[in-house]
Design a protein around this nucleic acid. Structure first.
Lengths: 247, 247
DNA sequence: ACAAAAGTGTTGAATCTACACCCATGC
DNA sequence: GCATGGGTGTAGATTCAACACTTTTGT
């Protein structure tokens, strides 16, 4: 217990974004290099302070646009939760609202970026060293990846990793990369097609470098998957965000 | 777009709790009657301001204790997310971090309560009128109930609704009440027992008012359920907290 | 022809659902 | 005995996992 105990702590609120994509066969996250103190020169998730009169979701979309040039209305954007440990920001008491954004396989590093250097990096690299990212961004990223993995099971989230149209193989690659397990192409295809509203055939085909041309699909109207896509047992992890032992 | 647009909005942070239990065959939420403005006399979720140097989770546990007399370490407590729409609190800019707490079937209203009147109320009643609860607490409660329903499927959350020991019938009642669907007692029992680590027999029995005595169980070590408990198709709802159309 | 990727069919194992049936208690 | 809830057995439908096999392209 610290001694300071005035009620109504003076708090600043930031919004931070874990923007994930699948590139080069790996799950990658968009990082910026911090141009200012604290943590100057360190890699960090893009984000910034909440403005007066601004909604949280709007702030997330604005930061997305300012720092990456991406259009928030086209991306999946969902709140992950609040991170507010007292010592997480050396400037003072700062609570951040973390967001998970999913980007389709994008051109490259990112156009119109505000920050010194924005780049994609494989999440394993970012998570390998707990102090690789500024603040508690390692924790946030871990939460984001967990969430993305989980949501692939029960929702159609995987389709937003893909472009406007995509092949069954591309969609399957999303699952394989995010989950880190190989899936049977035959059974995968069958299951996706059988799940009502998951994907709809666009009527066109795409010629591959090799092999038979693949049917192109686009997102269907469904958001939740029933039955869910399975990735086998275990997976561990707390029930989503449990705080107390509760056991 | 509002005109005020200084960066670094001055914000206060509160913590609000949606405390759920199953009582009298219904899913109920703990409400207090507000003793101060704004919304004086209106029903609201318990909560209060974050203090200096205090962790978010610690604040949630403190409010739980202060306002309800419950011991946070014994309850399931998990963050739901942040709610921060600009107009949600007439006192100014207040972002709240909402928590979901699950309480076992408790004695009654609640001992040692701080607030004028704390009471349990069926969630349908609280949600029937969008303005029944103060602030945006209706939204928060809806999110909490959705989350609880979802977590019953994939986690052992149901056991924390029960006391230290419980019968299969009591555990089943949790599912039936929270989901609002009847379940087959025979299949339910079999499935729970087959899921490793969900429950463990305590070796004792409880004599009922009527019928054969029931075996008493206590929580097992598992936190996630595989395979999950199923409640049939649909359910609808956005993919958990999607913000943008993303479609 | 051959490699490579897209797809279809099939089969055995596991699971879900529904329900018949037995067990143990209070009245 | 009989009502009531706890609990086991079992059969048919559905789903899953694994893999043989066919289709369609580029080289």
């Amino acid at each position: 217990m610290s001694s300071a105990r005035r009620a109504h702590a003076a708090v600043k609120v930031t919004v931070d974004l874990a923007i994930l994509t699948v590139r080069e066969g790996r799950l990658q996250v968009l990082l910026i290099e911090r141009g200012n103190e604290p943590f100057r020169g360190r890699a960090a998730l893009p984000g910034g302070f909440l403005r007066d009169g601004e909604d949280l979701d709007a702030a997330a979309r604005r930061e997305l646009r300012e720092e990456t040039g991406l259009d928030g209305s086209a991306l999946h954007l969902a709140q992950l939760g609040a991170f507010g440990a007292p010592g997480r920001d050396p400037r003072g008491r700062v609570v951040t609202i973390a967001y998970l954004a999913i980007a389709p396989h994008l051109p490259v590093p990112v156009p119109g970026s505000d920050a010194s250097g924005a780049r994609w990096e494989p999440v394993e690299a970012s998570l390998a060293d707990p102090d690789r990212l500024a603040f508690d961004h390692g924790d946030i990223l871990r939460t984001a990846v967990d969430r993305a993995r989980r949501e692939l099971e029960y929702t159609t989230l995987a389709t937003v990793f893909c472009g406007e149209t995509f092949t069954m193989g591309e969609l399957r690659e999303i699952y394989e990369v995010v989950w880190g397990v190989p899936l049977d192409p035959r059974n995968f295809s069958r299951k996706v097609k059988k799940t009502e509203g998951f994907v709809i055939p666009s009527g066109e085909q795409r010629v591959q470098e090799t092999g038979r041309p693949a049917t192109l699909y686009r997102r269907g109207p469904a958001t939740t998957l029933y039955p869910p896509m399975l990735r086998g047992a275990d997976q561990g992890g707390e029930p989503v965000g449990a705080v107390s032992p509760a056991r």
